[in-house]
């Protein structure tokens, strides 16, 4: 392989690493929002997921159990959000932000003992034969379980949302909880489930950070990735494959600007660091122009409290 091909391959692998935690968290939030609930606590759920995954892996010595712990802990945080917003009907925006404050603090409290400790990162599972194809083999078929899972979920969730009855009900609940309720669907229960799925995914995103990306725990290690994930859901106009596009674009621009610096690009690094954010806005503008198409996707009841008739 030529030098430039080697760098291209290496950069692509780095992009996959940077995009995967965003992809998990954003796909989870997408399902949550499809049910009509806005959960701004993604950052907090990711942190709780990250610290729990790390603790789980450290205590059991098994990284996969760690991953499960992260997912479960993220789910518990979402359950708390659900109890407040769905049962006690609190405001979703404020509750989500409070979940983040709470999650940042609680994760730091749990992680106090983990300074200077590391765990064995999740190992890669190369696909036999396919992974030996030059270039594409390494690019596509030599990853850890979570990377495969994240991409599989894009297809799985796309299929679920648009091709299954369950997906139809989820969308109906998000678009019009009143009529869904009138048709006999348990709106609150469905929203609870969607929220918990979102928490589970945010937990997986956090687990990816503390077990694979940088196998360690440190306070606030998400460094704003939960917020980017939230933005990606909007960016994706609530479609899973566009989340994939957005996450990889965001990760891609981030990594490419680092490579640009390494190659001696003569622009102040602050401006280069702005690029992922500006690119996201630009692409959103390009895809949002068709007003009618957008309205079909955006869950109509997003952020609103619903109280079923008894």
């Amino acid at each position: 392989m030529s030098d430039s091909m080697t760098i291209l391959l290496a950069a692509s692998l780095t992009i996959i690493g940077a995009a995967t935690p965003l992809l998990f968290a954003a796909l989870g939030e997408l399902i949550t929002e499809r049910s009509g609930v806005l959960n701004l606590g993604v950052e907090g759920m990711m942190l709780i997921g990250a610290v729990s995954a790390f603790a789980g892996a450290l205590i059991t010595g098994n990284t996969y159990i760690g991953v499960l712990c992260g997912a479960f802990a993220g789910m518990l945080m979402a359950l708390l959000h659900g109890y407040l917003t769905l049962t006690l009907m609190t405001n979703q925006v404020a509750t989500g932000l409070s979940i983040t404050i709470f999650g940042v603090g609680l994760s730091a409290l749990i992680g106090l003992e983990f300074v200077g400790v590391t765990v064995e990162p999740l190992s890669n599972l190369p696909v036999p034969l396919l992974s030996e194809i030059p270039f594409f083999g390494t690019l596509l078929f030599d990853h850890n379980l979570l990377v495969y899972l994240s991409v599989a979920l894009v297809f799985g969730l796309s299929f679920f949302i648009f091709k299954t009855r369950g997906g139809l009900i989820l969308r109906a609940v998000g678009d019009s909880p009143e009529s869904s309720h009138a048709l006999g669907y348990p709106v609150i229960k469905i929203r609870y489930m969607a929220l918990m799925f979102g928490g589970l995914m945010a937990g997986l995103g956090g687990a990816y950070l503390s077990l694979i990306y940088t196998p360690m725990w440190s306070e606030n290690m998400t460094a704003g990735r939960g917020w980017v994930a939230l933005a990606l859901v909007v960016f994706a106009t609530w479609k899973p494959w566009r989340v994939l596009l957005g996450a990889y674009m965001f990760g891609g621009v981030t990594i490419l600007q680092l490579h640009g610096q390494g190659f001696g690009l003569d622009i102040p690094s602050q401006f280069l660091s702005m690029l992922p954010y500006l690119a996201t806005i630009l692409v959103l503008v390009l895809i949002s122009r068709d007003r009618l198409k957008l309205r079909e996707n955006s869950p109509a009841s997003l952020g609103r409290t619903f109280r079923p008739t008894a």
Binding site: T6, I7, A10, A11, T14, G17, A18, T254, I255, L258, H259, Q261, G262, F263
Partner: peptide, 9 residues
């Protein structure tokens, strides 16, 4: 990511 980038280069 920055460290990976440098190593890749």
């Amino acid at each position: 990511d920055a460290a990976k980038t440098l190593i890749d280069q």
